[in-house]
Design a protein around this nucleic acid. Structure first.
Lengths: 239, 239
DNA sequence: ACGGATTTGTTCGTATGTATA
DNA sequence: CTATACATACGAACAAATCCG
């Protein structure tokens, strides 16, 4: 009888409130009806409505003030930045450019001391190494070094596409977050040449260890960006 | 009789669960008791316990699997990074170094085109400008340009300490987040000299617009870091 | 300065749905 | 199929913060 049994009511409530905001029924800075009133209007219990409001508050769509009321927030001027984890392929496509790849090396190699530490490698475990130059509209953007522990790749690795993220997912490995260090160097003997960097273009480096949902390190990568080709956005929050 | 009447029970429950994890009663990967059982053990209702578990899951302390159970997550190897907003003063103190300041300029000035756009200034509104060099253990770390809209400073600004964050809070202005651009330049005529940067040390720039909880821009700052003195950490998450 | 009305915050009890072993 | 565990939902009550007369 209930054809909505598949969609939780708090999600429906969220959509209804979003709709009220986007169609102008509720404007920025405007106060929402009280929880009791709004719950009645939407035909849900106050607890269910509060679950919806909790999520909307988490997304900064609304602001709740104890003893006063709930208000529609001003629209932030902001789009997500580097704190959102995406692959280089996605990065280039988001800019509306054509991603390209020049592969310099692939294969299994002995790990360095850094690799063992960062990837939590067991004894004698090799890593799968990929070295590539990634281009945007055929202009070199970033020199990529990627290393994957062997024990992540149970059936041998089938690296057959540009995005390592995608081919790892085909192996059942899902990256959840990355611990990233950002720093800058003026020049690198080999890489600056390969990237057609004259001496006055510094390299912006992203050194990243990627983890899955269980906090297991699954990918270690070092990216050397041409600093004249890239700006990173970050959304920094008070904690 | 109940001396905890002031602290919400779900916060107490969170602490009790944290304690169980930190004292080893619950180990990483281990399954928690069922919600019903744990609620009984902690002396709260299941709803209250769930509020506690929800927050712990948000913090990645635990992982919940529908129909299976709740588990203690492996400890991430990670400390917070640049996506956490902190002042330069905090940044230096976190590294265990002594922050210092050399003030180059303070006063009200006409805004530039960029300032008007980023700070959403009204007509003829001046900005309060501060130019400083911040040092860590007396070594120049960063050249700071900070701009504050006049209408934020109702009673005239009392800029009397190193941290602009702190002195803004004294004015009743609480910064919530910052929209940040990161990029690198090889050289800046004036700043590289002031910072004692030889030509081969690039400058790592953070260009930030800070907002309060209501998404009102309250501070625009440009920081030029000596790239040999700084590395930024970022925690990047899949969305 | 006080009290009552309003609004959000917290807590409990209970029932039912859904996923997994 | 059944038992277990997490997910969703409702109703009710009281606490805490705020506002206004």
């Amino acid at each position: 009888m209930n054809f909505n049994y598949q969609t939780p009511r708090y999600l429906i409530a969220i959509e209804q409130i979003r709709e009220k905001i986007s169609n102008g029924e509720l404007e920025p800075e405007e106060q929402l009806p009280s929880e009791t009133a709004l719950a009645k209007e939407l035909g849900v219990s106050r607890n269910t409505l509060r679950e919806a409001l909790r999520i909307l508050e988490e997304e900064n769509i609304i602001i709740r003030k104890h003893g006063i009321g709930t208000f529609v927030n001003r629209k932030p001027t902001f789009q997500g930045g580097i704190e959102e984890l995406f692959s280089i392929t996605e990065l280039i496509e988001r800019e509306g450019k054509q991603p390209g790849t020049e592969i310099l090396f692939t294969g299994y190699v002995e790990p360095h001391r850094d690799d063992i530490k960062e990837l939590d490698l067991i004894e004698d475990e090799q890593v799968f190494l990929v070295k590539r130059v990634r281009t945007a509209d055929d202009i070199p953007l970033v020199y990529c070094i990627d290393k994957i522990p062997t024990n992540i790749l149970r059936n041998g690795y089938n690296f057959n596409q540009d995005s390592i993220f995608n081919s790892l997912e085909e192996e059942g490995v899902f990256i959840d977050y990355a611990k990233t260090q950002m720093y800058t160097i003026a020049y690198h003997d080999e890489i600056s040449k390969v990237m057609n960097c004259e001496e006055h273009i510094p390299l912006q480096i992203l050194r990243q260890v990627h983890f899955d949902k269980s906090n297991r390190p699954v990918l270690y990568s070092i990216n050397y960006f041409r600093s004249d080709q890239i700006t990173f956005n970050v959304l920094r929050r008070k904690t």
